[in-house]
Design a protein around this nucleic acid. Structure first.
Lengths: 242, 242
DNA sequence: ACTGGCTCAGTGGATGAGCCACTATAGCAG
DNA sequence: CTGCTATAGTGGCTCATCCACTGAGCCAGT
């Protein structure tokens, strides 16, 4: 198997940087919920960019539910807890360059609980085709079980297949939002995939339960694996950034 | 009680319209996943807008995971199923002005299943403060049980409180993404809240289970209510748009 | 005193021309 | 065959302007 692309160097565009900065200022309470942001012209001057660029960043913030932009009025800061959607997680979990460990732990717990639910539903609805698709993904994991990075990719695929087996499209989107938080920093979690036998063994167990249509079994197998896997991811993270 | 504001007239900005149009063209397969969008200059000319405006729309699409923009290369269409996050749901469920009923049914099913999970976790982790907060929200629903619109708002608040009772912040964000799909069109679902006694009765049942710490009870009460409520929402929708 | 219309200042919406920066490719020099 | 360079195509970003919407205050008519 060919080596995967070596993760293109992260370039930070101005807009990207600007959005992060604004977001940080909002999340840190500098611009409290319910208040107006300074006018675009002033904000642009303050951050030293054009109004056009600033606007790009504002529109992106709006799409995450962090602000509401109203013609003739201004940009109003929304209550994050009340409005921000799941896609905002990927930006909230990485603040100021580092990880927000508390939120990340929270996220992984949610992943484990929801994964359990997915396993349960998947077991009760799997078709022949689903089982085959899962078997194939499992095979991929087995073949690459000694390469942490490859295994990580294979595990992700397997989990995606489990989610698809629920036949609930909304679950796939929810799952994407969660994966997106750590997907772009896969390398940071290599340490969680060094014990290849444990990973493949766990996936096999999950596969067996789903194949057998055992809802309760699949639920607990998923939840157990994801919980332990989450712990290892956290550990890997703490090793890197002391 | 005073009459609520009569829903401000929805204004559609150019960027909003443009984003919808592009999105529709992507989702409908006109620009298949993996291929490049036409160059910005050409796209702008084709849609009859400035490149600046087009860019605003593209950036928004990027934030939903529908495209990837690469300097010097172009905008590549992402595989929606693989990348689009939960916030994309609100736009996918309302295509071409009407509702995508299939996706909406799917969404409501997911809501019921996840709601069950939330109920279970909430029951196992509720604190005194949570119970009080839930009781207060329940009281609000009781007081407005004869006004469908008011009841709907109160029910939303109650469900939010249940989610908060899980003490898993990620759940709140996931929940926001789901609510966002129908939150902006609350009026369309008034029909689902006409039987005030049934709604408040159901909420009371959920409250009791959570208060008593009965995980299994809370899970099934939530799932039952949300399933039935979802059916009524669909019915209300079908009445309106034959 | 109240109503309705008008004006004005402040704010976001949108434009279009222009230049910079990045990427891939083809052709040339060694 | 290798490695450099020129070039064309694409997105990144700026700038200067004008349009459209909102809210507040003023003023004339009733």
């Amino acid at each position: 198997m060919s080596q995967d692309a070596p993760e293109p160097i992260a370039r930070t565009s101005l807009i990207e940087t600007l959005r992060k900065k604004l977001q940080e200022d909002i999340l840190s309470g500098r611009y409290p919920a319910g208040t107006s942001l300074p006018p675009e012209r002033e904000l642009a001057a303050r951050y030293g960019v054009t109004r056009t660029s600033l606007k790009h960043a504002l529109i992106e913030l709006r799409s995450f539910g962090l602000i509401a932009i109203r013609h003739g009025i201004g940009s109003i800061v929304e209550d994050v807890a009340a409005r921000a959607g799941a896609d905002a997680l990927q930006y909230m979990a990485q603040r100021e360059g580092g990880w927000d460990l508390r939120l990340f732990v929270d996220l992984l717990e949610a992943r484990a609980l929801i994964g359990g639910l997915f396993g349960r539903v998947a077991a009760s609805r799997r078709t022949e085709a689903d089982v085959e698709s899962l078997r194939e993904a499992l095979g991929g994991a087995r073949r690459t079980s000694r390469d942490p990075h490859g295994l990580q990719v294979a595990e992700n695929l397997f989990m995606r297949r489990v989610t698809e087996t629920t036949h609930v499209r909304t679950f796939v989107f929810l799952s994407n939002s969660i994966s997106a938080v750590y997907a772009r920093t896969l390398d940071a979690f290599g340490g969680a995939f060094e014990d290849g036998d444990w990973v493949t063994g766990s996936l096999e167990e999950i596969f067996d339960e789903i194949r057998d249509g055992s809802s309760a079994g699949a639920e607990s197998a998923m939840e157990r694996y994801l919980t332990e896997s989450g712990k290892r991811m956290i550990a890997a993270l703490e090793e890197q950034s002391p």
